[in-house]
Design a protein around this nucleic acid. Sequence first.
RNA 1: GGCGCGAUAGCCAAGCGGUUAGGCACGGGUCUGCAAAACCUGUUAGACCGGUUCAACUCCGGUUCGCGCCUCCA
Length: 499
Amino acid sequence: MSLRIYNTLSRQTEEFVPLQTPQVRLYTCGPTVYDFATIGNFRAYVFEDLLRRTLRFRGFQVTQVMNLTDVDDKTIRGAQAAKVALGDYTRQYTNAFFEDLRTLAIEPAEHYPAATAHIPEMIALIEILFQKGYAYRSEDGSVYFSIAKFKDYGKLAHLDLTGLKPGARIAQDEYQKENAADFALWKAWQSEDGDVAWDSPWGRGRPGWHIECSAMSMKYLGASFDLHTGGVDNIFPHHEDEIAQSEAATGRPFVKYWMHCAHLVVDGRKMSKSLGNFFTVRDILRRGYSGREIRYALMAVHYRQALNFTFEALDADCGALARLDAFSERLLAHNDQKSAVSGQRSEDGGQQSKIENQKSKMSALPAWMGAYLAAFTRALDDDLNISLALAALFDFVHEGNKRLDEGALSPAEAAQALDTLAHIDGVLGVRPGDTLIPPAAVVQLAQARLQARQRKDWAEADRLRREVEAQGWIIQDAPDGFRVKRNSDPRVNAQIGNG
RNA sequence: GGCGCGAUAGCCAAGCGGUUAGGCACGGGUCUGCAAAACCUGUUAGACCGGUUCAACUCCGGUUCGCGCCUCCA
């Protein structure tokens, strides 16, 4: 079995064969850092992370580039409105973006090139396009790409633009284009740009949007690379234009596989500020949900399927995660009696070595366990069929629980089951972190309650339970004492700031 | 108008021409000072109309409804 993915270029599911196995070069269209990114944006980044983790799970070595668009109309306008320098303005949102990536356990890419740090590369690329006759300069000093010169134009979007005529949607400042569908490689300076400008052979100005991705992907990944991802809305014009620029300049195929994820909607409607259904990751955290819960919700629907985000679904996802947690805890307790306190995890080392280590362990699994791991893998192999993969995981949980009930699972097998879960989580990235370890004060209260129980002082025991609950933790009695768990009810967490 | 996607049980969401998807919720049970948690277990499907077939949720055609893109929005 091998990994198969849907290629937007062919509109078909194809076997994934990298240009230089086992090396995989992946380019991901990153954020425009003009505001906090929304959960819609992060749907795309969680998808890209699932792809990245699946590739690594399947033994590929991934080199990933994610660009940061830090100069465009919106960033310039935002900086001017805030009366700060462009770099100062974008820096705060870049920092927020990286914070959100960590919140959602998205593995870092190898490179995060910023557009403003690669102006010379873009200018060099535009010069090549001039030399080869694909670019022309208009009177105002802007430079455009002539799509008429590139015969494959439209092969990604499957659009026929030959009949397209200039209309109302063509901005006034672009009247100088030869063809309505020609796009800007370089934008001549205008007064609205303020002090945002760079010198170029064609005069002062700034780069067009598409050129940054071509220039930066070539710099870090080479003229041809394996995978390019983004949201469906990027297919046209952004990715179509990237192909045109890049292939015109190098004469070589730009990208082998294009993958695009569908949009996220909220309550069945497009997210918009006027509908009041507009959410950033921070907004959801403020409501008491955790990063991994948001991650799970954004990941659990197949990437080519529109994702309908609702709080009802998010609550259901919390339940699903709780089921996974409970199974891990049972296994941990079965394997190691020391675990009176829930939530401790041994392995949070580097992801790279983690996956390598897991791999060798996975070869010696009991047959029943191996079958579920195989089913999980098979599902991912089929164009990242996450729903089917999760079904395999929950089938594994079900059988594991059953075996525990029947006393048919040895402590050694429990350890193997934990290894299997860790291996699977190398892809999913939803295991709880330190947030599940209770503070010492809470544990003390729980201890005091245990003593009250042993005295059969039920009133005091109940009082102490309520005190613990007020701090966002729940006591669960167990045959060997008690467990303290973080309250996962988002309403409670939102209230006491437990998020 | 052009290109494309979808409609599955209370909600979310898969595979499959005939054999239990899965999660949440709900019902029943085990356990329990209380409380919960956990586990086991059960019920509710395939928008509509035709066709192909021994057999269709699954293939084909049509209808209805919803959605996306068609110049800078992941």
